[in-house]
Amino acid sequence: MAAIFASRCSRVGRSLFGGLSNSSPGLFTTLHEMTCKNMFSQQQRTFIQMRTVLKVVDNSGAKKVMCIQALKGKKGARLGDTIIASVKEAHPNGKVKKGKVVYGVVVRAAMQKGRCDGSEVKFDDNAVVLVDKQGQPIGTRVFGPVPHELRQKKHVKILTLAGHIA
């Protein structure tokens, strides 16, 4: 999606700036790159849906997974929800291999989530902890902060393994 949008942007840029000036083509390209960059950095954070790539924050062996199914909600998964994902990158001698279909709990999401006290919480990135069908984590360590809402979702084991609870 992003690639298509970028190519479309570049095509528009070329058609607009082509006839204006032949002497300084570099100026316009840099300007165009900057605008595109700003557009992507200021994008609206949204649900974790199909084809969303997430970071794995445990020592199960996987590095990156791609969401193939959100198990709850119409639009997609949010903080604390369970997803089905496909392993895209993995360590060579880990428990999980590349291409394997796994379950995962979203422990960090860039989209804000309302809390019971009325405030909202959001994180830096989208991250998951890989679990089995029973909901028990595959790894033995969890890195980085995790939200305390996981207690309501009955993922107490993840909370005990986590270093920081936000």
């Binding site: 009325g118 405030s119 909202e120 919480v121 959001k122 994180f123 830096d124 902060p145 936000a166």
Partner: peptide, 16 residues
């Protein structure tokens, strides 16, 4: 006050 604002958690667990 409770119910107001947003909190952002950075990956080093610092809360803003």
């Amino acid at each position: 006050y409770p119910g107001h604002g947003i909190q952002f958690v950075r990956n080093d667990a610092k809360i803003f």
